[in-house]
C-alpha cells in the first residue's frame, strides 16, 4: 500500500504542486491525469524517491521512503517497475540484454535461467522474435513493450507507467492498454498510470487522481468520476476527443 501525504514540490521558485495526498491500495490501478506540465511525471518520480519533495511523505507499507538511507531506498525501488515515457532503453545493449540487465546485477540466476526468464517476459509482450534486435531498430510501440518487459523482470509489487500510450497510433495504444490490464491481472500488480489519454483511463483505471492548479484537484473511483460534477475535471474530460457519455 502506498500512502502519499501532504507532498509539496517546487523547482526553484516554481511551485509544481502542494499538499498532494492520496492512497493507493494494493491491487488497484490508479490513473493520474492532468494537463501537460502539471507535474504528473514529477509525482511519479516521488513515489519511488527518484526525486525528493520539499515536504511531505510517501509511505510504502507504512515506511516513509524519504527517511531511509540510500541503500534502503534502492531496495524499496526494486519493488517498483517503471515504464518510462521514452521507454529509457539502454541504447548500448540489445533488446535481450536490456531486459536481462537487472537480472545480471540483482539475481543469482544462471545464464540459462536468465535466458528463460527474459524470453518468458518477452512472450508477455509478444516480442519473442525481437530479442536479438538492437534497440535502435525497434518502433515506438515495440520500445514501450520492451520497456514493459524490463519493468516486470524483477517481479515488482508496483508498476508505474509514464504516459504509456503517448506518441502511439490508436491501435498500438490499445495493445498497450491491454498489456496494462494483462499485467495487473496476471501478476496481481498495483499499477499507477500517468496519462492524459482519457481513452486509456477509461479502459484501465479503477481510481483516478486529477492534478490541477498546483494541487490534487480531484480523487475518486472511475465510477465516481463519471458522475462527478467537478467543473475542472469535467472540462478536462470533455476536452478529450472521447466522451464518457
Amino acid at each position: 500500500m502506498i500512502e502519499i501525504k501532504n507532498l509539496t514540490k517546487s523547482f526553484g521558485d516554481m511551485l509544481v504542486w502542494k499538499d498532494v495526498s492520496f492512497r493507493i491500495e494494493n491491487g488497484d490501478t490508479i490513473a493520474v491525469i492532468g494537463r501537460s506540465g502539471c507535474g504528473k511525471s514529477v509525482l511519479l518520480k516521488h513515489i519511488n524517491a527518484l526525486l525528493t519533495p520539499d515536504s511531505g511523505e510517501v509511505l510504502i507499507d507504512g515506511n516513509n521512503i524519504f527517511d531511509m538511507e540510500y541503500v534502503d531506498q534502492r531496495r524499496i525501488r526494486q519493488k517498483f517497475g517503471i515504464l518510462f515515457q521514452g521507454s529509457a532503453l539502454f541504447d548500448s545493449i540489445n533488446t535481450f540484454e536490456n531486459i536481462a540487465f537487472p537480472l545480471r546485477y540483482f539475481s543469482n540466476l544462471t545464464e540459462n535461467e536468465i535466458h528463460d526468464k527474459v524470453m518468458r517476459s518477452l512472450e508477455y509482450v509478444n516480442l519473442e522474435d525481437s530479442a536479438q534486435k538492437e534497440t535502435s531498430e525497434l518502433s515506438g510501440g515495440m520500445r514501450k513493450r520492451v520497456g514493459l518487459a524490463r519493468a516486470i523482470i524483477l517481479e515488482p509489487e508496483y508498476i508505474m507507467y509514464d504516459e504509456p500510450t503517448s506518441g502511439l497510433d490508436p491501435e498500438t495504444a490499445n495493445e498497450i492498454n491491454d498489456l496494462i490490464i494483462l499485467m495487473a491481472e496476471t501478476f496481481d500488480i498495483t499499477s499507477i498510470v500517468i496519462t492524459h489519454d482519457m481513452h486509456s483511463v477509461l479502459r484501465v483505471a479503477d481510481k483516478v487522481a486529477f492534478l490541477h492548479d498546483q494541487k490534487l484537484g480531484w480523487f475518486g473511483t472511475l465510477e465516481e468520476m463519471k458522475k462527478s460534477d467537478d467543473k475542472d475535471l469535467l472540462n478536462f474530460i470533455t476536452a478529450s476527443e472521447y466522451s464518457i457519455k
Binding site: Y70, F84, G86, A88
Partner: peptide, 16 residues
C-alpha cells in the same frame, strides 16, 4: 542517458 531517463531507469531498478 539523463535526458532519455536512462539514469532514472537505472535508479528505479535499484542501481546506484
Amino acid at each position: 542517458m539523463r535526458v532519455s531517463e536512462q539514469i532514472d531507469a537505472l535508479e528505479s531498478m535499484g542501481f546506484n
